[in-house]
């Protein structure tokens, strides 16, 4: 392994690093929005839309991101929907992540103690008010560790974007290997790059989980 080669490749990787972060960011924000909508539909038992969102959740969770991406990027143009690789990547990540976020958020809502719901009812809150003042504030807090775990998961999934040739970290490493045969160096930098992103997040997740176990409200 040569340090010179590593140093020379740093600028390309830095670019890829930011791209990975940017794509992850959009995908995760989108996924959280989809997840919030889906879990609200489920919580409020909205007819029809709730069934649609349940079907979406099953499809999204039980198929691989790679196939979802292939479908969006290669198959959709054949029925007249053409989007760029980047847009396809972000859409795929949102499609996949939305269902994971929905499960995390809904799990949090379900985790709100029954007595909390009952005491809300006991002071005359309507279902909507109960959701707004009691269930959602507490439930969303409870779902934070699961959301954080999904954030890590989704960032890792961006490595699959390489199959539609988005120049994120993994794709860049493969490029370096293909062009210059710098296999060891490229893989080394690749692992380090993911570690830089994911180790702090993973530590934060451990901390969040520990805090959640202690009961963040401590009522």
């Amino acid at each position: 392994m040569s340090w010179t080669i590593i140093q020379q490749s740093i600028p390309v990787f830095v670019q890829a690093f930011w791209l990975t972060l940017k794509l992850s960011f959009y995908g995760i924000i989108g996924a959280i929005i989809v997840g919030l909508i889906a879990s609200f539909l489920r919580y409020f038992k909205v007819p029809v839309l709730r069934q649609i969102s349940a079907a979406y959740t099953e499809i999204s969770r039980n198929t691989p991101l790679l196939i979802q991406l292939f479908f969006i990027y290669y198959a959709f143009p054949e029925i007249g929907i053409k989007i760029s690789a980047t847009a396809a990547g972000i859409s795929g990540l949102i499609f996949l992540g939305g269902s994971y976020m929905a499960e995390a958020i809904y799990g949090g809502l379900q985790g709100v103690a029954k007595i909390q719901v009952e005491s809300g009812l006991a002071i005359g809150l309507s279902r909507g008010q109960l959701a707004r003042y009691v269930v959602f504030p507490q439930g969303l807090t409870l779902s934070v560790p699961a959301i954080a775990a999904n954030v890590i998961f989704l960032i890792k999934e961006t490595s699959i974007f390489t199959v539609i040739a988005i120049p994120e970290l993994t794709n860049t490493a493969l490029d370096q290997i293909g062009l210059y045969y710098h296999t060891d160096e490229s893989l080394f930098v690749l692992v380090i790059a993911y570690a830089i992103i994911l180790i702090p997040l993973s530590l934060a997740l451990t901390w969040l989980e520990r805090r959640a176990r202690r009961g963040s409200f401590g009522n």
Binding site: T162, T170, D184, L187, L190
Partner: peptide, 23 residues
């Protein structure tokens, strides 16, 4: 555990695929 959790599976595949034969 943390190594296999943090490194994306795609990258794990490449690590083993390229590095085992070469090194």
């Amino acid at each position: 555990l943390e190594f296999f959790r943090i490194v994306p599976t795609v990258v794990l595949l490449f690590l083993f695929y390229y590095i085992l034969p070469k090194n």
